[in-house]
Nucleic acid binder design. Sequence first.
DNA 1: CGTGAGAGGTACGATTCTCTGACCAGAATA
DNA 2: TATTCTGGTCAGAGAATCGTACCTCTCACG
Lengths: 152, 152
Amino acid sequence: MSSAGAAAAPEGPNIGLLLYLPYRAMENRVFAALAAAGFDDVTPAQAKVFQRIGPNGTRLTDLAEQAQVTKQTAGFLVDQLERTGYVRRTPDPADARARLVRIAERGAAAQLIAARVVAEVEGEWTRHLGVRRMTQVRDALTRLREITDPYA
Amino acid sequence: MSSAGAAAAPEGPNIGLLLYLPYRAMENRVFAALAAAGFDDVTPAQAKVFQRIGPNGTRLTDLAEQAQVTKQTAGFLVDQLERTGYVRRTPDPADARARLVRIAERGAAAQLIAARVVAEVEGEWTRHLGVRRMTQVRDALTRLREITDPYA
DNA sequence: CGTGAGAGGTACGATTCTCTGACCAGAATA
DNA sequence: TATTCTGGTCAGAGAATCGTACCTCTCACG
């Protein structure tokens, strides 16, 4: 292997694609399971925002930033999630201008299903790669987050 | 921690998110570089299709399938890529109904820029993780492709 | 205090992306 | 050759996203 500087050997497919494919596979599985469980009205766009809601609620602006969409888009999606009962908006006690988006009952139920499927798929991957390799991937990706996730 | 399918420990954040974050970071970098180099008229949706064009051209139907969009959507995006000079449609000698979508000069130029940035970012990641870890990730992801990419 | 700059959100309109349904032409097969 | 399948397009509708503009509330500072 040559030096790491900028002369990384471009062997094999694009690392971006290699990351994307399993990500997409996971997403597909989760959506399929959600739909099968009756949560068939969530869209990928909504999920992108929903996923970022913290346990104590998150402000719209923060959701927008983390999901990399505009405030308007985030607002649009939260509106839908609210109408379909997945989230709730509550006043932010710390700032009268702001409101906290929180996960509602239905949202929590969906989240549970999703978590189960994620664990299941992760199990499949672990069986395919072996525990050792799987752990390595998780560790490496966690570290990579330090330089790829501005909100880590 | 309760068992789940194969008793995978769900510690840390969702593996899906861990895959997604670096993927998105890479994508952002590539688009920024392309825009800076004058290729500011490519959209993410177009790229999703463009990326799947093989060296000898690829049929619309295949592009659609791999990008997981309908034929109509793929056609719509290829139309745009064609208008902006990134691709070309040529008759498929093997089937008079079909046409092969091929990368045109401008597309190849953009691809070159993209490849450079990918290598650059990969270099940064390697510096952060170390060569050993980076290799492990690449290997593991390549293997994972076997069970997550139906077109591998 | 009062005031101005900035932050959290919403409203409106325009694009872009995507899908469904209907359809046509060439290929494959009985 | 009649039937069916495959590659692809057309038309219309719905979803997602953005840019611009605007309102309200907060906070730092004089």
